[in-house]
């Protein structure tokens, strides 16, 4: 960011033990790792690079990835760190099939600390698919009430209501085709409706595919609502050294999604 990047925590790199694995949906798993002693408390939107160590328990079509993959912190309660893993390829599939006792290499916490993501008042979380990843981090930040808009393509991807209710006071799920619980349609329809409703303006945090972030930015700009988005870019290093994640910044210049973000004010990420 121009005028000095937000502060970074002191990241650690360590082999951590898997302590719990919870299937949330056929392709979505919650992975709990034992936190190392003195692990810095991650902020909402911060992430870690993960890599399953040891031989994979599933047959591979090709080789293992070269690079450790980025995942948002879903939860951190002192003793444990949680990540929500959506299976899309080799490394996510390997992470999703780990058993307790297996080891995962973690580098983190990475990404900028955003003090704006802790505070009082209403918070509106908007998640598309694996964008549910960071949404577990907000319960401990002081906000209230918290509403969660959560969209998936169809029922087969959808995470159960019981789990979702743990993340927010009010949960509004959507599926594109109406096959799941909640409403039929796009999560952005829900966002538009929420922003039109009476009452104090919420702070909005959105994570999901680029199309969703862009539409959320448009809707929030129209109504003058404060928005933060978790941007995505391919990250080779996650540490600010390779510029593979660099994107144009508002008003010129560039930002690195991995160290200046991944959370940006909604208008910065889409100049």
């Amino acid at each position: 960011m121009k005028g000095g990047a937000p502060p970074l925590g002191q990241p650690l790199m360590a082999g951590l033990e898997v302590i719990r694995v919870q299937a949330l949906a056929p392709a979505t798993t919650l992975l709990w790792l034992k936190a190392p002693e003195g692990f810095p408390k991650p902020f909402p939107g911060q992430f870690a690079k993960l890599r399953a160590l040891g031989p994979p328990q599933i047959p591979l079509k090709g080789g293992r990835a070269l690079l450790d993959k980025p995942f948002s912190f879903h939860g951190a309660d002192g003793d444990s760190l949680a990540f929500l893993i959506r299976e899309v390829g080799t490394e996510t599939a390997i992470l999703a099939t780990l058993s307790p006792g297996a080891k995962v290499r973690l580098t983190g916490p990475l990404g900028a600390v955003r003090p704006e993501l802790s505070g009082k008042g209403p918070l509106l979380l908007v998640a598309g698919g694996a964008g549910l990843g960071p949404m577990g981090m907000f319960r401990a930040q002081g906000f209230g009430p918290i509403s969660l808009l959560y969209g998936e393509r169809d029922a087969s991807f959808q995470v159960g209501q019981g789990f979702l209710r743990g993340l927010a006071d009010r949960v509004l799920p959507f599926t594109d085709d109406g096959s799941g619980h909640g409403e039929k349609g796009l999560v952005t329809q829900g966002l538009e409706r929420e922003l039109k409703a009476d009452g104090p303006k919420p702070l909005v945090f959105c994570c999901g595919p680029p199309g969703l972030l862009r539409e959320a930015a448009r809707l929030c700009r129209e109504r003058d609502v404060r928005l933060y988005v978790s941007a995505e870019a391919f990250m080779a290093c996650g540490l600010g050294i390779c510029l593979s994640c660099s994107i144009p910044a508002k008003g010129g210049g560039r930002v690195r999604v991995c160290v200046d973000g991944p959370v940006f004010p909604g208008d910065t990420a889409f100049p």
Partner: peptide
């Protein structure tokens, strides 16, 4: 300024 993204892949 460099290139637009995606800028890298495995």
């Amino acid at each position: 300024a460099g290139n637009p993204g995606p800028r890298a892949c495995e």
